[in-house]
Structure formats: structure tokens, C-alpha cells
């Protein structure tokens, strides 16, 4: 992929300039696409589309702008392991908080009278 006509140190992989511009073009295209799709009524599906497009953009940025394509496997693993823990965090919390949502939602109303007497 990179121009090895020149003798760079083994850890140096300059990204080809045309590739960077192509990636930028694709990113702009996807940005416009996500705005356009958001104006179309897709219901539940709209969120999924937006996330898929965002993930495609994220992939392009990671792979080429961030040089992951040429990077060590370990570094890539390190970065993506963070997503695993984020999903764990979101998943477990979401699994739980739904069950007592009604109590939380009712609280400001039930406390309304006591609130108005305090300085809060």
C-alpha cells in the first residue's frame, strides 16, 4: 500500500496521499447520506441506519487516518477491547435500570410538595 520505493525505517508507513483524499471524500459522502436519511421517516430503523453509517465512518477514520491498517495487531486489539468494556457497561446498566424506571419517574411528582417548601 505505502510507497516503499524510498527506504523508510520498518515502523514508518506513510499513507498514500490519494488514499487519504479518497477516504475524506467517502467520509463527506457518508455525512451527507446520514443527514439525508435522517430526513426520511424510517421509524425505529432510522436509528440503526444512522449508527451503521457512523460506524462506517468510524471504520474509515480508524483504518486509514489512524493507520490501523498498517499498525500492529496488538494495538488494534487494545483499542477494540475498550469497546467491549463500554458495551458491557452500557448493557448491564441498561438491563437493570429499566426495572425501577417507574419509581424514578414518579419521584419528582411525589416530592413536589416537599420540594416547594425547601430552598431547592
Amino acid at each position: 500500500m505505502s510507497d516503499h520505493s524510498h527506504d523508510y525505517p520498518s515502523f514508518n508507513h506513510p499513507a498514500p496521499v490519494p488514499l487519504l483524499f479518497v477516504v475524506f471524500g467517502a467520509l463527506i459522502f457518508l455525512t451527507v447520506a446520514t443527514v439525508v436519511t435522517s430526513n426520511i421517516e424510517l421509524g425505529e430503523f432510522g436509528f440503526i441506519v444512522a449508527m451503521i453509517i457512523a460506524t462506517m465512518k468510524a471504520f474509515l477514520v480508524c483504518a486509514f487516518f489512524m493507520h490501523m491498517w498498517w499498525d500492529k495487531g496488538f494495538n488494534v486489539l487494545v483499542f477494540f477491547s475498550s469497546l467491549l468494556f463500554v458495551s458491557l457497561f452500557i448493557g448491564m446498566t441498561l438491563l437493570d435500570t429499566g426495572s425501577y424506571k417507574e419509581t424514578i419517574d414518579a419521584f419528582p411528582t411525589t416530592e413536589e410538595s416537599s420540594l416547594s417548601t425547601t430552598e431547592y
Binding site: 435522517s38 477514520v61 480508524c62
Partner: peptide
């Protein structure tokens, strides 16, 4: 790399905050 990460986060913030339908 740091700069691209800031960009990456915005890539998600934009649809999440601005493009809800």
C-alpha cells in the same frame, strides 16, 4: 491519533444528538 479520536467521538455524537427521528 488523539485528534482522530476526537473526530471519531464527534462522528457518533452528531447522529446521536442532532439526527434523532
Amino acid at each position: 491519533l488523539y485528534w482522530h479520536l476526537v473526530d471519531l467521538i464527534w462522528i457518533y455524537l452528531f447522529p446521536l444528538l442532532y439526527l434523532i427521528d
